[in-house]
Design a protein around this nucleic acid. Structure first.
Lengths: 143, 143
DNA sequence: CGTTTCACTTTCATATTTAAAGTGATAATC
DNA sequence: GATTATCACTTTAAATATGAAAGTGAAACG
């Protein structure tokens, strides 16, 4: 009666030993990298915040992607209160390292897809190699 | 009786103005970038060659992805003989520019997915900014 | 006690993917 | 010259994933 929740990514055997194929098995869809984008660039931490994306991700898809990212060790679910139990999501170094991929996707998109907005100058640089470092204090509650 | 073949990518309206979202609408799946990989790094040009991928792409998927890439202006289908009409596939500059994204995906995969093979040293550099330049002559048939 | 909010989960219709077989135009073999 | 093979796809049917919407449980609010 459970549901095994083993959508590849887990211990299913690989399609090949190609780093591209294996990476696509983890992030090769239309939503995963948007979640990472929000966690990384928008510094969203809560489920409700992640639901606010411009692309209107559906609740079931978001929940499933968060679970996948967590299972793959790219995301951590950290409890920050009891009653009701609530947690925040944070990228691990593995997840935050997707930054380099995201950066090139942004560059390509801005160059070839008309109408896409470019991040303000210098914006990406600020995430360059410290993406996983704590932001300011640990900042909670008050935006 | 036709089939409109308008799987997003075409003139469907966008999810947002985010370059990541828009790029994912073009390449955000498990196969498209593998096709680009073969065209770019393996220098495959024919349908039959592309079918040989380690990941065993299905014929219908390959055909559909080639069509999508072509519709999106990332790929050109160039006839090289009549009777029977045959063509080769070549990336346009837009398609070849996916190189930067691929390179970061390879880097990430090699770093975080155990068992993935890394390209030989210097291999990627040779594609750096001349990815679209004609390779050698135009080489056909032999080799 | 009744209504809200938050963080999901469930359900169900639709869309995409997988797997496998089929098709049409030649080219090669018997 | 009929049979078989090859290439480049297409079609079909079943399995899986996604999209849209409604539902759930545990507080917190009024």
């Amino acid at each position: 009666m459970k549901k095994i929740l083993a959508t590849a990514a887990a211990g299913d055997f690989e399609r090949s030993d190609c780093p591209i194929a294996n990476t696509l098995d983890l992030i090769g869809d239309k939503w995963t990298l948007l979640v990472v984008r929000d966690l990384l660039f928008q510094e969203k931490r809560l489920y409700g915040e992640l639901m606010q994306s411009q692309e209107k991700v559906r609740s079931n898809i978001l929940a499933e992607r968060l679970k996948r990212l967590e299972n793959a060790g790219m995301l951590e679910k950290i409890p920050y209160q009891q009653n009701p139990l609530r947690h925040e999501y944070r990228l691990t170094p593995k997840g935050a390292d997707l930054f380099a991929i995201l950066k090139e996707i942004i560059r390509w998109g801005n160059k070839y897809v008309p109408g896409t907005t470019a991040p303000p100058a210098g914006f990406l640089d600020s995430f360059e190699k410290q993406a996983t470092v704590e932001k300011k204090k640990t900042r909670r509650k008050g935006s």
